[in-house]
Amino acid sequence: MNNFLDSFSNFAFRNKNFIFLSFLIIPLLWLGVVYLGSLLIFLGHSFFHLDGFTGQIVYEFSFKTLLELFSSPANIDILIRTVVLAACVTIGSAIIGFPIAYYMAKFTSPKVKIFLFIAIMLPLWSSYLVRVYSWKLILAKEGIINWFFEKLNLEWLLDSILSTPVIGGPSLSISYIGMFLVFTYIWLPFMILPIQASLERVPNSLINASHDLGANKRQTFYKVILPLALPGVIAGSIFTFSLTLGDYIIPYIIGTSKFFIGQAVYTHQGTAGNIPLAAAFSLVPILVMVIYIYCAKRMGAFDAL
């Protein structure tokens, strides 16, 4: 059968493998040697350890660094804090994203759908830093949220939210609520698009059938639509969860002085010069995501992509 490769390869018409190899060899060298090589060397450092006395890396295979990671309460705190935040962000974006996705998939004309699609793609692809910056403007003490609460004479409400232990803080821009809002905002499009794709695939006849069989709107939603949209939600959660796990910019700019995984990696490789511990920290989001993706795959999340 003729295909792209055949027609392109006038000179190697009978030798498809040659062309195929020459196509693949450059990207493969780039990714396989330059990228994967660097990656494995860096992650491999988690089996080395830092000599406590000289501060030099000891290039000997041992589990010392990994043990240090999982035995120090401070490090465990960082891991738990990050995973809990990532879970909250995932749930938050699913709740905010679902109505948009549902509306887009089932209640719009094709023209409005394209418009909404671009409306969701724009924030997704536009500058990450600018979007984080916009929240610095919003959350500032003199910013729009405080202004809004003031106008409604609800300052007491904001103050009581901020004085709540754990999630509160001196101001919205230095609190976990602030971080949660920013993370949810930044990754929301990654949640909307897969949910929309999975809802798009729910045949209307199925919904009609559910109505015909006597289910009301609410029952149809909970018994038919929601279960069928679940793979989309899980696919979206892969993005929101993993992106939150590895980010260090938002905790750095919006967060409190308490570290998250990304910041821990950054500090350990930078000022502390503890590459082994930085590598060990990096292993955590990778392992969490491998397990997560494995479970998601078993639940059929990838059919929704």
């Binding site: 990714l31 396989g32 330059v34 990228y35 060397i41 990096s282 989001p285």
Partner: peptide, 19 residues
């Protein structure tokens, strides 16, 4: 392998290349 650089957190890619 092609998807990996964008799937992994940027900080891991960055440090790996840097070292």
């Amino acid at each position: 392998l092609i998807i990996l650089p964008i799937a992994l957190p940027g900080i891991i890619t960055g440090i790996s290349l840097r070292s």
